[in-house]
Amino acid sequence: MDDDELIAILEDAGLSPYQAEAYVALLGLGTASATDIAEACDVPDPRIYDVLRDLESKGYIETFQQDSLTARARNPSDVLEDLRSRSEKYLDAAETIEDRWNQPEMTDHEVSIVKRFDTVVNRARELIEEAETQIQLGVDTDQFYELAPALADAHDRGVDIKLSICTAADEKIPPVADIEGTCTEARHRAIPSPFLVLVDRTWTCFAPHSHSVNEYGVLVNDGTHTYVFHWFYLTCLWEIWDTLYTERTPETPTSYVDLRHAVRDIEPLLNEGATIEATVQGYRTDTKDTVELTGTIVDVDYTGSDMGRQDPIPLAQLAGRVSATLVADGTTYQIGGWGAVLEEIEAITVTVTDVRYETSAPPTESE
């Protein structure tokens, strides 16, 4: 580093131009009179005494009388510590600027566009680590393994996790042994897909698939926007694809985080005359207070029910209003799904705890 560069850096560290020049000159001279220092740099003679006193007060040099005012540089340990401290602050500031540029702080009801895919994945991991009730994600094999530890922790906390693994023709699907313990159910989509993670009905992390020419990401903290991505997930990444792994069994209790999926299973049982006991956790739509109700589901209704009964009910028939009627402690409640406004309760989870028939077994076709 030449003198000019060193002087410029010392100025950045807080010295005036004259102070920086005088200090660099003195480093080369060792010990020198004020006059000699002035001659070795561009500091005017009348100013050199004030400049040296200022450098001494800052701890850079020490002065003494020897025929004339003489100066020498002090042990630079204090100066070096100060410069290194400033360097660390600059590095910290640089990292902070980069982090904030890559990942703007999210506030309520906000949509942010970010420039790097890594930002989207890192934010998805953080949200998975904080998830409370449900996660839906569409990822390729590499992305699955990157998020697998966080998914396993969320699964251990009881979070319902639907995993869609989307692969190109030349990509391998993770073995079931690797998938087990990371999700409630996994399906395979044999077509590449965008990266998509939905958490607790509120957060969305989205980025185009790896073959896209554009690299960007969308981070959403808003239930309405996330609901739109939810339907993309159901129709494109979930509904028609083969199941790789599931924890669900015919035995109860069976929990649902989507009323539409619950209605699909409950309606046939009601048509067979079953008594269905269930617990609903959710919110009152008028006050947003949390509520937990245990009772009997006596009816279900959905906008597409007049299209004719099919088994299973096509997703298109459940795209409109869906509700269930729950009788709990003698009171009848209308239970709605995600975003319910007409029903009294918006269900977050519906857990079917018991299914009973008047006879010991469900009726057969001959009956």
Rank of each mutant, 00 (worst) to 15 (best):
R100Y: 02
N122W: 04
V199G: 13
V228S: 11
E277A: 11
R84T: 15
A328Y: 02
A324P: 07
V79E: 14
V79N: 09
A13I: 11
L315E: 11
P363H: 06
E180K: 09
Y23L: 10
W231K: 08
V350I: 08
I191D: 13
D99S: 15
T133K: 03
V220K: 02
Y302Q: 02
C236H: 11
I9E: 14
D289P: 00
A347Q: 05
S68I: 10
P363C: 12
D289M: 04
L29P: 04
N214I: 07
T96G: 04
T296A: 04
Q143S: 09
A93E: 12
T63G: 01
I297M: 03
G339C: 05
G295L: 05
D108K: 07
F144I: 13
T294V: 09
V257G: 01
Y302L: 03
S360T: 14
E39Y: 08
Q310P: 00
C183H: 00
T254F: 01
L234G: 06
A190C: 07
L52R: 00
G138D: 03
I37R: 00
S16P: 01
I345P: 00
D329V: 03
H209Y: 12
T332E: 15
L259K: 01
T246H: 03
A32W: 02
G14P: 11
D67P: 01
T332V: 11
E272M: 14
V322M: 04
D2G: 15
R53Y: 14
L244I: 11
D289Q: 12
T226H: 01
E346F: 10
Y256V: 00
L29R: 01
D45R: 09
P17W: 02
P314L: 09
H155K: 07
S360W: 14
M1P: 10
T31N: 05
I191H: 10
L29F: 05
S366I: 15
I240G: 12
E132I: 07
T141G: 02
A340E: 08
Y256I: 01
T224W: 06
V79K: 04
D153I: 08
D82A: 15
A152M: 09
T70L: 04
V228M: 13
P17E: 12
E185W: 06
A361Y: 15
E344I: 03
A73E: 06
E358L: 12
V327N: 07
E56D: 14
V120G: 00
T254R: 14
T303M: 06
I313A: 01
